[in-house]
Amino acid sequence: MSARVLVGVKRVIDYAVKIRVKPDKTGVVTDGVKHSMNPFCEIAIEEAVRLKEKKLIKEVIAVSCGPQQSQETIRTALAMGADRGIHVDVSGKDYENLGPLQVSKILAALAKKEDVRLIILGKQAIDDDCNQTGQMTAALLDWPQGTFASQVDFQEDSLKVEREIDGGLETIKIKMPAVVTADLRLNEPRYATLPNIMKAKKKKIDTVKPSDLGVDLSSQLEVLSVEEPSQRQAGVKVETVEDLIKKLRDSGRI
């Protein structure tokens, strides 16, 4: 009951926005584009708040790494029931280079500083699809990990985690402190109602710099090019079954 949980919330381009690649292929267009919380992070926050509501944990801390605007993402987490926020201020070139390794170093440092028993993250972010941060964070801390969780149950000092794996479900038991990453079916996140948004306005967000945490943000990864997936070819309409069979024959499919 006295445990603290750290939840990572990433600010990404909203899932409903059509992504455009910059003409120079260095990245995607983000200026003036609607951003919101990565949907898997919403699931992670929801799970943490539910654990708090079941009185299994005491405090939920939402953390986001990025520029000033990341605070909006933290506010959303606070409106969903997180208790306080930590904004790790990363901007400019550092933000461009910010990847799973840098974020996991930050999360690992914060986990120690805030003395947390559990870290819940989304299994991946919908912008870079990396699916690495949870695993790297667990490795850096040398904590057990329960990735792709579709169910989490507390058992004294352990967690029973049901994982979505190819071909079915796997259930594992891990000792806390631990890292859990949320899969799509873990829960259905709640909607931040106006009163909850209002109530969250005054919740505290501390801002720290990676250097305050002793984290070096240098990256060994160089992005060479970002490109649109190839356009889907337009289809053709056929009038009759005979036409279809002829077409398939002519194209050598049958």
Binding site: I126, D127, C130, E188, P189, V226
Partner: peptide, 23 residues
């Protein structure tokens, strides 16, 4: 060559029913 755009586009079709409703 590293291509990073996939993630943005691939996620949408896998969204659960919940998202559009909340939207």
């Amino acid at each position: 060559m590293l291509t990073l755009t996939q993630g943005f586009l691939r996620f949408k079709p896998t969204l659960p029913g919940a998202m559009p409703i909340r939207f």
